[in-house]
Design a binder for these strands. Structure first.
Lengths: 224, 224
DNA sequence: GTAATAGTGTCTTTTAGACAATATTGG
DNA sequence: CCAATATTGTCTAAAAGACACTATTAC
């Protein structure tokens, strides 16, 4: 079980990595890896509960966006022999994730550059992470996923910024608003965000709303 | 490892099921189930190779469309205790799948009605099958998947029919053709299908083409 | 000729893209 | 007033929906 936990910090999409123990009897000592571990058949009623537990251990976030990413199994991925892992990916807001979580002295946020991170990863985690990034970027083209990278209340501009950061390009303000409003998954709260200029309406996710699919991708041209 | 193998037979989307051995020391004796079994760590280099082997065992089809569906793991799914499975789903043409495949005396095609099949399934295979059907129907809205349900050469009308059968509704001929041609994943072969009326151009999948994503779903209204 | 299916064209609707215009705050 | 950001409007383009029309075969 491995979990790719994403957030946006300092305007950058980032993933949480943990450092493997530096003991020679463990594979890949000292290398960075996705947080994970074995299923605890006494504590985890199913795979998703296991993924949630891993996430809580590292970040103290309890209700993120969590999606199964896939499974990896082969005779090569672990030097000890044939092995499999279940991978999940999670999106969490920056606010809820202090640099040091519960038992996370060995954990760190790494910004995503291109298709991965700059550090070398253990096992096949480079491939898993790349798949997670692909999946995230692909779904952002036609779903409301980036809303899960924001705290409970946010402005329309902040939401647009999340889309732009994950997509790696700017989107057009007017089209963005039309698309978001007509998808009907957020609602205004009776508060404004005040700043040095015109205040902005605050919104929150509708309680009933899951992930919303837009009827088109962002760019009919140039992408996919 | 379980595989949901779909084809279209007699104008119906159908899934291949196998009957479990009728011995009381096995769970769910005599019930129907998705074809599957354990990974053979000597023969299967990775999970996909294992899924391909299961498929070949039952259908003699070697190069289908094969996609990882997900993993199921919990303490309840097998009466013998905590267990996990990796599920794949496959699409194959009807032609290549005789009722009795290699070791498939116990195998049968079951038409899909609604979200599943009429027979009771072992383990959590009802849930896995439902997920597979959902995934298939959802992807058919915006990808070229149904082409893998056809033999090598096919007419445009036959392709349209595959979309309609999986979607469970009719699609408009003109819009369908425009969409397919502009996605540029099939090419004409210099042959026609002759019938009782005007012959139809035959097409085949472009050799370089994988699954194609259309820029929009079929129905901006009413769906998703 | 007719029946049947293959294939094309025309018009409307929806929504993204581009870009401009207006609105509301702090100073 | 001006600067800065929020919010809305207008026009164009791409592609689907609806539906009619033409084309080519067997008979």
């Amino acid at each position: 079980m491995d979990v790719a936990i994403f957030t946006v910090r300092q305007q950058q999409l980032s993933v949480l990595l943990v450092q493997r123990p530096n003991t020679p009897d463990e594979p890949f000592p000292g290398l960075w890896a996705l947080p994970g571990g074995f299923v605890d058949i006494d504590r985890d009623r199913d795979l998703e509960a296991c993924a949630l537990r891993k996430l809580r251990d590292k970040t103290a976030v309890t209700s993120p966006y969590l999606e199964q990413l896939g499974s990896w199994g082969s005779k090569d991925r672990d030097p000890r022999g044939w092995s499999t892992t279940h991978a999940y990916f999670a999106l969490i807001p920056d606010a809820g994730t202090p640099e040091a979580g519960a038992n996370a002295a060995d954990a760190a946020w790494n910004p995503i550059t291109g298709n991965g991170v700059t550090v070398k990863l253990a096992f096949d985690h480079r491939e898993i992470l790349e798949t997670a990034i692909d999946r995230l970027r692909s779904k952002v083209e036609y779903t409301s996923l980036p809303v899960y990278l924001l705290p409970t209340e946010f402005t329309m501009t902040e939401l647009q910024r999340m889309f732009e950061i994950v997509l790696g390009r700017e989107v057009e303000k007017s089209a963005f608003r039309t698309r978001v409003f007509s998808a009907d998954f957020i609602e205004p709260v009776p508060r404004m965000r005040e700043g040095q200029q015109r205040p902005a309406q605050l919104y929150r996710l509708q309680r009933s709303s899951g992930v919303v699919f837009f009827p088109r991708t962002f760019s009919p041209r140039g992408h996919r």
